[in-house]
């Protein structure tokens, strides 16, 4: 079985993100694999282990520095990786770059199962997976919480507002991974050594189509509030009089 995983790099949330002149100061940012993409990769690796002879190919569309996360993916157990060297400016450009790269690697037949993270933790738009599936002309299922591969397709579950949705889809299908799908493995020293020997190919990603969405501005949010410390729960209820009244009003 051919398995494909699309990943991207994001700033580690532990790192300090500075803002200057309406843009992001990335000088103190430490980049990591997007956490949701780790669930996607782990799921692909599990499918590979289940079906002997399967391969996992990882793609990323980003600056040359994204090579680092591809090495990590190879160390986790992926077989080969492609870096589509480009600076996509919106999710649509990302999806288009990934689509073209996948089609050039699989010109005859699409991979059976493709994985993405549900969203990236930086811009959190979560648009790339469904856009990519649409561009490839295949089925997709976003935010999978559980997944079972069968001989004809997959059974998947996702959370919807107030419940769960279950679907069975035929291959080829693109799955976007939600937290809870699995617990990603840790990278071993042996994995790192092996990962260094695996193929990592850099391809030029050119894009002529202009972006569909433009980032107009970005401003830091001042989250700090002045906290009034109380000692008594009764006092708190008095102060929350307004909010508590609203709550019950919505009930009736």
């Amino acid at each position: 079985m051919h398995l494909v995983v699309c990943i991207c790099q994001v700033p580690d949330t532990a790192s300090v993100i500075g803002f200057a002149d309406g843009t992001i100061d990335r000088s103190r940012v430490n980049d990591v694999i997007n956490p949701y993409d780790e669930y996607a990769l782990e799921e692909a690796l599990r499918q590979k282990e289940r079906l002997v002879g399967s391969t996992v190919t990882v793609f990323t569309a980003g600056p040359p520095s994204s090579g680092d996360i591809l090495r990590k993916a190879l160390a986790m157990g992926a077989d080969r990786a492609f870096l589509v060297s480009a600076e996509p400016r919106d999710p649509w450009q990302s999806a288009l770059l990934l689509c073209r790269a996948i089609l050039s690697v699989y010109p005859e037949q699409l991979p059976d199962l493709l994985f993405c993270g549900k969203q990236s933790t930086d811009f959190q738009s979560g648009q790339v997976p469904s856009m990519l599936a649409e561009l490839l002309g295949i089925a997709s299922f976003s935010g999978a919480l559980s997944l079972e591969a069968t001989s004809v397709g997959v059974r998947a579950e996702r959370e919807i507002e107030g419940g769960s949705e279950f679907a069975e889809l035929r291959y080829p299908v693109l799955i976007s991974a939600e937290k809870g799908l699995n617990i990603p493995r840790k990278i071993s020293i042996k994995g790192v050594m092996e990962g260094r020997k695996k193929p990592l190919e850099v391809v030029e990603g050119s894009i002529e189509e202009p972006p569909c969405v433009i980032l107009r501005g970005i401003v830091p949010l001042e989250r700090k509030k002045r906290c009034s410390f109380l000692t008594d729960a009764g006092e708190l209820v008095e102060l929350l009089r307004h909010e508590l009244s609203l709550s019950r009003a919505g009930e009736h």
Binding site: I138, A139, V152, G153, R155, I160, E161, G162, G163, S164, E165, F166, A167, E168, L169, R170, V173, E243, L246, S247, G250
Partner: peptide, 24 residues
């Protein structure tokens, strides 16, 4: 007709209040 859908259903939780939609 879907190109791929084999089966499909939804199951709602009994307590359907979702944190993303709640006022409190």
């Amino acid at each position: 007709d879907g190109f791929s859908q084999l089966a499909h259903r939804i199951v709602m939780r009994r307590d359907a209040r979702d944190v993303a939609e709640a006022g409190i």
